[in-house]
């Protein structure tokens, strides 16, 4: 089973909300000081989905990341979890892309990798939350996609996927090759092992530039965008909470209930 997992390096979504800042001049987020970037958590779970298949029936996992000046400690994490190869699409020209230009570059890189049975992506990236790139790659490659998976098994040349829906889940069978996007319901991604970290340290990623994957410069990064970012801003929070205080927890709790009654909320 040949598997490819797309992993995005993002600002840590678990950074304290108070540290989140935007530079209005450039319409960009200011990286919080002292908080290193991470692999987008849904993408880590996509790695986990691939590893579970590798555990049960063997296979090879190639991880694909796109960006510029990617931090090796960050993008190598899937290797330390158990993935086999790392390909980086790394160049200035890949910066500033939207779902269109990113999916296009990733699809072209996947074509270059060549053999694959399953491609995994996170359901959405923890920065822009668009949830488009996975479906976009599948469309460009002309393969079927199943999104928002919580369980993936490969059986008899097909994948059996549990797809999360509002009131439960659907069991969907899909022919291979296919692209699956993975949701947090899959369960936690495994930790890197010490052995894995040491093996990952020795592995050198393959680095491809736009010309290596044959992408047209006019379709790459910021030049390939189809949506224009007009404005990025932080919603205003009013922050007018009335804290109920009392001598004991029981009195504070009862005081809160009385407050809710006075405000006609109960």
């Amino acid at each position: 089973m040949n598997m490819i997992v797309c992993c995005k390096q993002v600002l840590d979504p678990e950074a304290p909300p108070a540290s989140f800042k935007i530079d209005p001049g450039s319409n960009q987020v200011v990286p919080p000081p002292g908080v290193p970037p991470v692999i987008s958590p849904f993408d880590e779970q996509a790695v986990e989905a691939a590893l579970r298949i590798k555990d049960s029936q063997g296979g090879k996992i190639t991880v694909l990341s796109l960006g510029n000046k990617l931090l090796r400690d960050v993008v190598k994490k899937p290797l330390s979890m158990g993935a086999d190869e790392l390909v980086l699409l790394e160049d200035e020209a890949f910066e500033g892309g939207d779902s269109w230009s990113i999916a296009y570059a990733l699809a072209m890189a996947i074509k270059k990798i060549g053999e694959f049975d399953l491609i995994f992506c996170g359901r959405q990236a923890a920065d822009w939350d668009a949830g488009q790139v996975g479906s976009g790659i599948a469309e460009i490659l002309g393969i079927p996609s199943v999104t928002v998976a919580k369980k993936v098994e490969a059986v008899d040349g097909k994948a059996r996927v549990e797809r999360v829906i509002a009131d439960g889940y659907q069991v969907v069978e899909v022919t291979l090759p296919a692209l699956i996007t993975v949701s947090n319901e899959l369960g936690e991604a495994r930790y890197a092992t010490l052995k894995g970290i040491m093996a990952a340290a020795k592995k050198q990623p393959t680095i491809w530039k736009p010309a290596d994957i044959g992408v047209d410069p006019s379709q790459t990064g910021a030049a390939g965008r189809r949506t224009k970012l007009v404005k990025l801003f932080q919603p205003v929070r009013e922050g007018k909470c009335e804290i109920i205080e009392a001598d004991s927890p029981a009195e504070a709790a009862a005081g809160l209930a009385v407050k809710l009654r006075e405000a006609k909320l109960i």
């Binding site: 909300p17 987020v29 923890a126 920065d127 970012l229 404005k231 919603p235």
Partner: peptide, 13 residues
Amino acid sequence: SVFGGNARAIFAS
């Protein structure tokens, strides 16, 4: 909504 709800973005195409 973007960045996990930390920010809003206005797009046009």
